[in-house]
Computed example of a mutant assay.
Amino acid sequence: MSKDNLFKNIEKKSGVNMQELFKLANSIQGANFKDEKTVRGIIQEVGKLANKKVPKETEDQLVKTITQNPQAIDMNKIAKMIDGKKKK
């Protein structure tokens, strides 16, 4: 399977535009994860990209978690925080 076909399959299944995903990935390289405004912007962009509304409370928790210790960003923990809000 070619790289283009792989990306098209991912787009089809996830609904996420791969060009937008790459653009986001490039924009966060070297980002200051100790800066609240930067982190909020990234969270909002990810929400838009995924076509999901991130509740203010969840955004606040993510910002706090990420800005307090940016070296320890654990994507599984962040995903669980978001999924936990859906189950209520």
Rank of each mutant, 00 (worst) to 15 (best):
K88P: 05
I73L: 10
L49C: 05
K86F: 11
K77W: 00
N9Q: 14
Q29I: 09
L24A: 07
E20Q: 12
K23T: 10
I78M: 12
D35Q: 09
K52Y: 08
I78R: 03
T65G: 05
I43Q: 03
E45W: 08
M18R: 02
L62G: 01
E36V: 05
E45S: 15
L21M: 13
M75G: 07
T67E: 04
Q44W: 11
Q29L: 09
K87Q: 15
Q61K: 14
T58E: 03
I43L: 12
A72D: 10
I43N: 04
F7L: 09
A25E: 13
D35L: 07
A50S: 14
N26A: 12
M18E: 03
G47D: 12
E11Y: 02
I43H: 05
A50G: 12
Q61P: 00
K13T: 13
L21C: 10
K12I: 06
I10T: 04
K56M: 08
M81Q: 13
E11F: 00
F7Y: 11
F7T: 01
K52T: 08
G30W: 00
S27G: 07
K13F: 13
V54L: 08
A25L: 14
N32C: 05
F22E: 13
N9S: 14
L24H: 03
G41H: 06
F7M: 07
F33Y: 09
G84A: 03
L21W: 07
M81S: 11
S27T: 07
A31Q: 02
Q68V: 09
Q44N: 15
E11A: 05
V16I: 15
P55Y: 02
V16C: 02
N76A: 11
Q61L: 11
I73C: 06
K87C: 09
V54R: 00
S27Q: 11
Q68F: 10
T65H: 08
I43A: 05
K12G: 07
K85D: 14
S27Y: 05
G84H: 03
K34L: 05
A50D: 06
A72R: 06
L24K: 05
N9F: 08
F7R: 01
K87R: 15
K88S: 13
K48I: 08
L24P: 02
F7S: 00
K87M: 14
V46S: 05
R40E: 13
G47P: 06
G41L: 06
F7Q: 01
D4R: 01
D83H: 10
N5Q: 15
D74M: 03
N69T: 10
L49D: 00
K64Q: 11
G84Q: 04
M1A: 11
K56R: 10
Q71T: 11
K13E: 15
T67K: 03
K37H: 10
T58W: 00
K87A: 14
D83K: 11
M75T: 10
D74S: 08
S27A: 13
A25S: 14
D4Q: 08
K53N: 13
N9W: 07
K48R: 14
I28Y: 00
K77N: 04
D83M: 12
V46Y: 04
P55R: 01
N26C: 09
D4G: 03
N26F: 11
N32F: 05
K23L: 07
M75D: 06
K52D: 05
T67V: 12
P70T: 04
V46I: 15
T58H: 01
V54E: 02
T67G: 04
P55M: 03
N9Y: 09
